[in-house]
Amino acid sequence: MEHFSMMALWGQLVVGLINGSFYALLSLGLAIIFGLLKVANFAHGALFMLGAFSALLMHRYLGVNYWFALVLAPLVVAAFGVVFERLALRRLYHLHHLYGMLLTFGLALVVQGVVLDRFGASGASYPPPDLLRGGLDLGFMFVPVYRLWVIVAAIVVCACTWIVIEKTKLGAYLRAATENPELLKTFSVNVPLLLTATYAAGVGLAALAGVMAAPIYQVSPMMGADIIIVVFAVVVVGGMGSISGAIFTGFGLGLLEGVAKVVYPEAANSVIFAMMALVLLFRPAGLFGKET
């Protein structure tokens, strides 16, 4: 019995790390977009779903394999993001922030509605690539290789993003534009282009997460809506202020959710929301946020 529950705990911790990987990737993208554009991108979940769907459709109709999809799907979604930012989102920067949120909420409804209309609600499964099939015996537990890959890949992507933003010249521009876009313009940096690129990169990250999620979850039109609400709670807990904060909170809350599945399964899908309420009561700015 004791042994069994330890096995269950390890198993759920891995599941928690998997979910945490997606929370981290998505809240990272949200934080990058928000930092520069001051837009809470409501369409993030829908674009995550679009990433998974593009991978599925490319596989089904064009025979594109997982590894190419991992590159192509984010590019497709990023291109979509560029068009959306240039044609629509850009017009709202001078207005109250809430309009950006309303616009992206509309986009989320459209994207989800169109996919739902075309492909139905049930969804489909996406086969993991041959290279990552099978499982690995770690001695104390058995883990599917694909899941390990997702955790490692998510950590690497998060680390790379952090390095790009904190340690490179491009990242320095980004941080400068976050602090004072007007001043940066006088240094002849193309700030509007920077904004477009940032939005594209953020939604590209969401699509990348979507492709990674495709072999694990059922690829369905509502997969993004379900996860984005949780990710919003993660963002509230972590605060949008810091990149590393978003990453740590994502993984941490994923793990917490995993533990809850063992300890008290009925409340597992509520635990992140409950955590959010607790953090708001005792530390309203969020764990890593600046006081506003």
């Binding site: 709202l92 986009l107 509605g113």
Partner: peptide, 16 residues
């Protein structure tokens, strides 16, 4: 026609 799509378009059109 999909009600959700219409509402999404309406959101975007109104805001813009």
């Amino acid at each position: 026609m999909s009600v959700v799509v219409m509402q999404g378009l309406l959101f975007m059109a109104t805001v813009l």
